[in-house]
């Protein structure tokens, strides 16, 4: 039975993007955050509790952080294909533009889910326990899937608009930094934060993913988490539309 075009594109995206360097960035960086921040900041937190408690708080945050890394994979695939000529080569192949785009989105999603699963496994090894309830795992799966699609669409949108690789890399690094640290990945949203920063936390989609994953991880899901996920769903639809539109209009010239 012939393999569908979309699966072939996903195979290719994974095959050419899983070199050791890429894996170190995708898995190694969040993994180091988990270990170093988990124990480093955990020792500070230990003054009022145990360092394991911070590690348990951080784990769902780092799992959520994987959706941003997965999004950057998507944007980077588009840029690499453009830069190395494969975009136009693939688009004279047996694929539609939309299939190519969906291939990248689904690849991002798989990297997001795979990376999160690795982080969950690392945390389990460090803490010795973790969530095992099917519902909790299902909520985490759904949140990370949605988050990966959102950040994949966002990075593709930026990738389609930005005209140079240097500019794309700069935007990507800036975005990772802001989205990561202005979210509840590393610390809870405290009422002591300045209002401007709190607003930034609230509008940051990574906060929604981190809160939902954390809620599922610790069995403390609230109604707010559900609303946040609905909002993220709506934002994902908007950015998917924008990404598809920008990409369809983008130049694929090969001269």
């Amino acid at each position: 039975m012939p393999v569908p075009n979309l699966l072939r594109l996903i195979y290719r995206n994974i095959k050419v993007n899983t070199d050791p360097g890429s894996l170190i960035i995708l898995i190694g960086l969040p993994g180091m955050y988990l270990v170093f921040f988990g124990y480093g900041f955990g020792s500070l937190a230990a003054a009022g509790g145990s360092s394991t408690a911070y590690l348990s708080f951080l784990t769902p945050g780092i799992m959520s952080f994987q959706v941003v890394m997965a999004g950057t994979v998507g944007g980077s695939i588009l840029w690499a294909d453009r830069r190395w000529g494969m975009l136009s080569q693939l688009l004279v192949g047996p694929f539609t533009r939309l299939q190519y785009l969906l291939g990248i989105m689904l690849t991002s999603m798989m990297f997001g889910l795979g990376g999160s699963a690795v982080m969950l496994g690392v945390a389990y090894a460090l803490i010795g326990s973790g969530p095992a309830q099917p519902l909790a795992l299902a909520v985490m799966f759904a949140s990370i899937t949605l988050g990966s699609i959102f950040f994949g669409a966002l990075m593709l949108f930026i990738g389609a608009l930005v005209k140079s690789n240097t500019a794309y890399n700069s935007v990507q690094i800036l975005l990772i930094f802001i989205v990561n640290f202005a979210s509840t990945v590393f610390y809870p949203l405290s009422s002591g934060l300045p209002v401007a920063l709190r607003v930034l936390f609230y509008v940051n989609p990574l906060t929604y993913v981190a809160d939902a994953v954390r809620g599922a991880y610790s069995g403390t899901l609230t109604g707010l988490d559900v609303y946040q996920m609905l909002l993220l769903g709506a934002e994902t639809v908007v950015f998917l539309f924008l990404a598809v539109r920008a990409y369809m209009r983008s130049d694929v010239s090969y001269e």
Binding site: K15, S88, Q89, E255
Partner: peptide
């Protein structure tokens, strides 16, 4: 095409991946 176009892998890998595509 006139310009270069390669996947970031080996020569053999490029042929294999293209065959899969």
């Amino acid at each position: 095409q006139q310009s270069e176009s390669f996947d970031f892998t080996t020569v053999q890998g490029n042929l294999d991946v293209y065959g899969v595509l």
